[in-house]
Amino acid sequence: MPSPSTPLFRFGVVADPQYAALGPNLALDRYPAKSLAKLEEAIAEFNRHDLAFVVTLGDIIDGGWESFDLVLPVYETLRHARHFLLGNHDFAVAAEHLTKVANRVGMPSAYYDFAHAGYRFIALDGNEISLFAPPEGDPRRDDAKALMKALHDAGALNPHRWNASVSDAQYTWLAAKLQDAKAAGEKVIVMNHYPIFPENSHNAFDSDSMLALLAEHDHVVAYLSGHNHAGNFGVVDGIYFINFKGMVDTEDSNAYAIVSVYEDRLEIAGFGREESRVLALQALNETSGIF
C-alpha cells in the first residue's frame, strides 16, 4: 500500500493548445502558431516524470485539417500513454472532415472511459449538440439552437455558438458508467472540454443536468475541463471542478499541469500560468460552494 507521501499515480494535463499556422489573435491574446513550441516544452517536462498518461482536454488545433499534420507528430515524442478529448476548434475544418476528427486524432471513439489504479476516468464528447460538430442538416444543430434560445430566454450566461452539450444517449451512457464505477469500488474523474461549474459564459449548455447527475454520486472526485482559457475552479456537492488555463494564450508563457493522485488528496503542480493546488479528498463531502 503506498504511503501518504507516495502518490498512487500521476498524470499530465494540457488544455487548449489550439495550434494553427496563423498569426496572433491580439484581441484575445492568443498565439496559435507558438503552441508547437509550448507543447514541445510541456512534453519535455512530462517525459522527465513517471506518468500514467497525459490528457489533452480539447482544442488540439485552432482550425484547418492540415493543422493536425503538424501538431500530432509532437505528441509522438511523448513517452507516456496519451488521451485526447475534442473541443469546438477541432471541428473548425472542412465539412467533409467533420465526422473524421476523432479517428484522425486516434481516439477509440468520441467519448470513452478507462480505468487506472482504482480510478475510472470518463472522457466526454461535449460537442454532440452544437452548431459546429454535426454535419450540416443534422437535427442536432437544431437541438443546439433550441437549447441556446431556452438559455437566452432564461437569462443564462452561456447561450453562445462556441458552447455545446452531450446528447441524451451520451448522458445515459455517462449515468451507466458512473454506476459501473460505483459497483467496482472505483473513484471517478470526469473529463470534458466544456466546464459546467462555476457558472460562466463558457459552460456547456447542459451544465445544470450534468451537475445534478454528478451530485448523485459520492465517488466522483473531480471534473476536469478546458475551453475557458482564463481557467476557473470551484467545489460543489463534494466534487472539485478544475478548469485548466489555455496553452495558446499569451505570447511567451506556457500553461500545463501534472496531477498527483494520493489516497487522501489530489496535488496539482501547475507550470507557467497554471495554478498549483492541494485538494483534500477526505473533506469533499463536507464542503460546498466556490473556493
Score class of each variant (00 low, 15 high):
96 E>C: 05
90 D>C: 06
98 L>C: 02
35 S>Q: 10
75 Y>S: 02
21 A>K: 09
31 Y>W: 13
46 F>N: 12
72 L>P: 01
31 Y>F: 11
52 A>R: 09
78 L>C: 15
34 K>E: 11
62 D>H: 14
83 H>S: 02
21 A>G: 01
78 L>A: 13
28 L>S: 14
48 R>K: 15
39 L>Y: 01
21 A>V: 09
42 A>M: 11
60 I>D: 06
84 F>P: 01
65 W>K: 01
97 H>A: 08
79 R>T: 15
26 L>C: 01
56 T>Q: 15
53 F>S: 10
33 A>E: 13
83 H>D: 01
100 K>W: 08
61 I>A: 10
25 N>C: 10
45 E>S: 08
80 H>V: 05
87 G>L: 05
82 R>E: 08
81 A>K: 12
89 H>W: 04
100 K>Q: 13
94 A>H: 05
41 E>L: 10
73 P>H: 09
70 L>N: 07
62 D>E: 13
32 P>V: 04
62 D>V: 00
66 E>T: 12
39 L>Q: 10
90 D>F: 09
87 G>H: 04
98 L>W: 02
97 H>F: 06
28 L>T: 06
58 G>N: 05
88 N>D: 14
89 H>S: 04
94 A>P: 02
34 K>M: 08
54 V>F: 03
80 H>S: 11
87 G>M: 00
98 L>D: 06
95 A>K: 08
68 F>V: 03
43 I>V: 13
22 L>I: 05
68 F>G: 07
40 E>M: 03
43 I>S: 11
45 E>V: 15
58 G>I: 03
34 K>R: 15
80 H>D: 09
80 H>T: 02
44 A>M: 04
22 L>Q: 13
98 L>M: 03
77 T>S: 13
34 K>L: 14
81 A>I: 00
91 F>A: 10
78 L>T: 10
28 L>I: 02
47 N>V: 09
90 D>G: 04
81 A>M: 05
96 E>Y: 04
42 A>Q: 10
45 E>K: 15
23 G>A: 07
96 E>N: 09
72 L>T: 03
80 H>M: 10
49 H>L: 10
30 R>Y: 06
21 A>P: 00
87 G>I: 00
25 N>I: 08
66 E>R: 15
88 N>H: 08
92 A>R: 12
33 A>L: 03
25 N>V: 04
50 D>L: 05
75 Y>H: 07
79 R>N: 15
29 D>E: 14
67 S>F: 04
36 L>G: 08
93 V>I: 03
25 N>G: 12
31 Y>H: 13
72 L>Y: 01
64 G>V: 06
52 A>L: 09
76 E>I: 12
55 V>E: 06
62 D>C: 02
70 L>P: 02
86 L>Y: 04
66 E>Q: 15
57 L>G: 03
49 H>E: 14
94 A>N: 12
